[in-house]
Amino acid sequence: MSNVLEIRGLTKHYPVGGAFARSLLHAADDVSLSIAPGETVGLVGESGSGKSTVGRCILRLEEPTSGEILLNGESVVAATSSRLRVMRANMQMVFQDPYDSLNPRIKVGELVAEPLWLSGIMSRKEADRKVAEVFDLVHLPTDTPLRYAHQLSGGQQQRVGIARALATNPDLVVLDEPTSALDVSVQAQIINLLEEIRQRLSPAYLFISHDLSVVSNLSDRVAVMYLGQIVEVGPTDTIFELPGHPYTRGLISAAPVEHPAQQKERLTLLGEPTSPVDPKPGCRLASRCPFVEPKCREGELPLQEITPGHSVRCRRYVEEHVDGVWDPEPTR
């Protein structure tokens, strides 16, 4: 079966700095990722990792510098703006800030109806009926369509955001940190809702988040991004049980314990993420990695497949692992 989404070598650079000291911010560098129909892929990274840039490029809310993005085999990058508007019915997005993502002066029902009649799927009248249906799907009261965003709670606002994304029955929904602005108890409601929707409508999700725990709860596969590059991608279980890349290990180990009695082996990454402006050759984690060796700072590092579906961008891991296991001594 062909993939819903196919990203090949997606690169997005932003020029930064003044007219003379031109620098390039590498928001995304050679990102390749595919999503099968009905699959959920988690995209994890810290701020500045480029995960949101990837999400926005997929919907062409930003123009990629280079690379190809295929939605059901059709190029998003090359689509004309009128074709793109039609294609958008098939790829939707849920945004991080539920309040900011809803227009404060338009009733939420109208916002949800918009993609339906704009894409020409149905008339405005039919769209209104469909709105009632999707609001029911996301468990919102029947009078919600007539309300404005500020009359709803944060959780309800995000349900509207999800309803809007689902209205056109898209094959792909990009979820950009959909729960990180919400309270813990509400976050769980939204995660459960997303799972429920997946079982009923089986859209493919790209779940973008900084929180590995949240991502792992929904995802079949996880891709970890660091400073614009995917450093590891693999099935969720593999990522948690046998993480290869030191950055993935650092992320997992940095998550707080679940119980005060729990003893957790910790791998501390030094310092903080550096900036993705004019990155040096070699591994981008080199300055923070406890296992760094001189060879890590040389040449381009490819993302290498270890087992089918599990790829790691780490020279030492690729060379030294035995059946996926690699327990090096810290080099500093």
């Binding site: 809310l61 508007r85 019915a89 939707q92 227009n103 918009e114």
Partner: peptide, 22 residues
């Protein structure tokens, strides 16, 4: 730059409508 403007574009609004309606 707000998310609702991006959401409007992602919903398939043509530019004139993003500008004047949203």
């Amino acid at each position: 730059r707000s998310q609702y403007a991006m959401a409007a574009i992602a919903s398939g609004n043509p530019h004139w409508r993003v500008l004047f309606r949203h």
